[in-house]
Simulated assay, not measured.
Amino acid sequence: MPWQPDPPSGNEEQAVARHMRAEYGVIAWYGHATGRWWPMQAGQLVDARTPDDLRNTLSGGRLH
């Protein structure tokens, strides 16, 4: 099983969500049941393991 980062604290989760909204115009959230970050981009649900992975996905337009 691949390494999974620890879940973010409430403050970290809010900070990442605010940053994603400001920089990429998406609403993003952390799925506590899935352990993944989720935003909607171009009408598609996208997921990423870490905030850095999420930034890479959103900036490159790659959908998983």
Rank of each mutant, 00 (worst) to 15 (best):
Asn56Phe: 11
Thr57Lys: 15
Ala48Arg: 04
Met40Pro: 01
Glu12Ser: 01
Asp47Pro: 00
Pro51Met: 02
Gly35Pro: 04
Pro5Phe: 01
Val26Met: 04
Gln44Ser: 10
Thr50Trp: 03
Ala48Ile: 04
Leu58Ile: 05
His32Asn: 11
Trp3Pro: 07
Trp37Glu: 00
Val16Pro: 08
Pro8Trp: 02
Met40Trp: 08
Leu45Asp: 06
Glu23Asp: 02
Met40Arg: 13
Ser59Phe: 00
Asn11Ile: 12
Glu12Leu: 04
Gly25Val: 02
Arg49Glu: 12
Gly31His: 08
Ser9Trp: 06
Gly35Ser: 02
Asp53Gly: 12
Asn11Gly: 09
Trp38Arg: 02
Thr34Trp: 03
Gln44His: 13
Tyr30Gln: 01
His64Arg: 15
Glu13Thr: 05
Trp38Cys: 03
Arg62Tyr: 09
Asp52Tyr: 12
Asn56Glu: 14
Asp53Thr: 04
Asp52Ile: 11
Pro5Arg: 11
Pro7Val: 07
Glu23Tyr: 00
Tyr24Asp: 01
Gln41Pro: 00
Ala33Arg: 14
Val46Gly: 08
Gln44Cys: 06
Met40Glu: 14
Gln44Arg: 15
Ala22Phe: 06
Met20Thr: 03
Thr34Ala: 11
Ala48Glu: 08
Glu23Cys: 05
Met1Ser: 15
Leu45Glu: 10
Leu54Thr: 03
Met1Ile: 11
Glu12Trp: 01
Thr50Gln: 06
Leu58Ala: 02
Ala17Thr: 04
Val26Cys: 03
Ala33Ser: 14
Leu63Met: 05
Glu12Gln: 15
Ser9His: 07
Arg62Phe: 09
Gly25Asp: 10
Ala48Asp: 05
Trp29Asp: 02
Ala15Glu: 12
Glu13Asp: 07
Gly25Tyr: 08
Asp47Cys: 12
Gln41Trp: 11
Ala22Tyr: 05
Trp29His: 11
Glu13Pro: 04
Thr57Arg: 14
Asp52Thr: 13
Glu13Phe: 01
Tyr30Ile: 04
Trp37Met: 07
Pro7Trp: 05
Pro8Asn: 06
Pro2Glu: 10
Trp37Leu: 09
Ala48Gln: 09
Ala33Ile: 09
Asp52Gln: 14
Met20Leu: 09
His32Lys: 14
Asn11Pro: 00
Asn11Ser: 15
Val46Met: 10
Ser59Asn: 11
Asp53Lys: 06
His19Trp: 11
Pro39Asp: 05
Asp47Lys: 11
Glu12Arg: 04
Pro5Val: 07
Arg18Gly: 01
Asn11Val: 15
Trp38Asn: 08
Gly60Met: 04
Pro5Met: 08
Met1Gly: 15
Met20Ala: 10
Leu58Glu: 05
Ala28Phe: 01
Tyr30Leu: 02
Gln41Thr: 06
Pro8Lys: 03
Arg36Trp: 08
Thr57His: 12
His64Cys: 13
Ile27Cys: 04
Thr50Lys: 01
Trp37Arg: 00
Tyr30Arg: 02
Val46Lys: 03
Pro8Glu: 09
Asp47Trp: 13
Asn56Ala: 15
Trp29Arg: 11
His64Leu: 13
Gly35Ile: 10
Ser59Ile: 10
Pro8Gly: 07
Arg49Gly: 06
Gly10Asn: 09
His19Gly: 03
Glu13Lys: 09
Pro8Ala: 11
Leu63Asn: 09
Glu13Gln: 13
Arg62Gln: 14
Gln14Phe: 01
Pro39Trp: 08
Ala48Lys: 01
Gly10Thr: 11
Ala15Leu: 13
Ile27Ala: 13
Ala33Asp: 15
Gln4Arg: 15
His19Glu: 12
Asp52Cys: 06
